[in-house]
């Protein structure tokens, strides 16, 4: 099945051109000598120098990275633990209920997720008598929440593939359950954990819509800064 017609190749090339042309245009204009995004006038790296010297942008970049690392770490740890818990649930109805709730942030439009969390934070803020309830804590909670399903869904298949008898055998041979887990199960689900963590991290870096509703003036991420 390696024969591909010329027409098919042309089509594939066309789609890639469509996907990459706008980015190529942006890249070219980033080296523009003037401030236009329409007309090229000479080559210069002035915009990059300006960018790296712009305190607000650099601060937003720093915030974005801190948020992505912290939220991905929390979501990965909690998500992995949750996957193990959900997988070992004996009550089928409870289990599918928990899975449905898990899927909610993924199925819901992002704008609804963002707004629902914002309303919760604003409501909790008024209850506690605080006017500026939105900030780092709220955006962190929001990011962890929308990352959790992705972590769970990438660990779950790996966990299902592991043979529970090996885990039991390790315990029969005198391993403490915790030690048996780290020696037997953990190495097998590690690829799922890593891909879940990477996904959580990149989702957080690029997130705009949910951040847009849950961020406060004190903590702006790069996507928020770009949009303003």
């Amino acid at each position: 099945m390696t024969k591909t017609s010329k027409l098919a190749k042309l089509y594939i090339a066309l789609i890639f051109a469509f996907l990459y042309a706008p980015m190529a245009v942006m890249t070219v204009f980033s080296f523009n000598g003037s401030a236009s995004t329409y007309k090229m006038s000479g080559f210069s790296t002035q915009w990059y120098l300006r960018l790296f010297n712009d305190e607000v942008t650099m601060n937003a970049l720093k915030n974005t990275i801190i948020l992505a690392v912290v939220s991905a770490a929390i979501a990965t740890a909690m998500g992995t633990l949750a996957t193990i818990g959900i997988n070992s649930m004996r009550n089928k109805r409870l289990r599918s209920g928990v899975m449905s709730v898990t899927n909610i942030p993924m199925m819901n439009p992002e704008i609804v997720t963002g707004i629902s969390m914002m309303l919760l934070f604003v409501f909790a803020g008024t209850m506690l008598g605080r006017k500026d309830s939105l900030g780092f804590a709220t955006i962190l909670i929001a990011h962890v929440t929308f990352q959790l399903p992705y972590v769970i869904l990438s660990v779950m298949p790996k966990l299902r593939q592991t043979d529970s008898r090996i885990y039991e055998a390790a315990q029969d041979l005198g391993c403490h359950p915790l030690k048996a887990f780290f020696k037997v199960v953990f190495p097998q689900i590690l690829p799922g954990i890593v891909s879940g963590a990477l996904m959580a991290f990149t989702l957080s870096l690029d997130d705009f819509i949910i951040s847009y509703f849950t961020n406060g003036p004190a903590f702006q991420t790069l996507p928020i800064h770009i949009s303003r």
Binding site: M78, G79, L81, A82, I84, G85, I86, S88, M89, V98, V101, T102, I104, P105, V112, T113, I115, S116, M117, L119, L120, F123, I141, A142, V144, T145, L148
Partner: peptide, 21 residues
């Protein structure tokens, strides 16, 4: 013990926000 943190989190930050809406 394993399930508690996640279920608590989901109740607080998935279900409760929808109730707020």
């Amino acid at each position: 013990i394993i399930n508690a943190p996640y279920i608590l989190w989901a109740a607080l930050f998935v279900i409760a926000p929808l109730i707020m809406v």
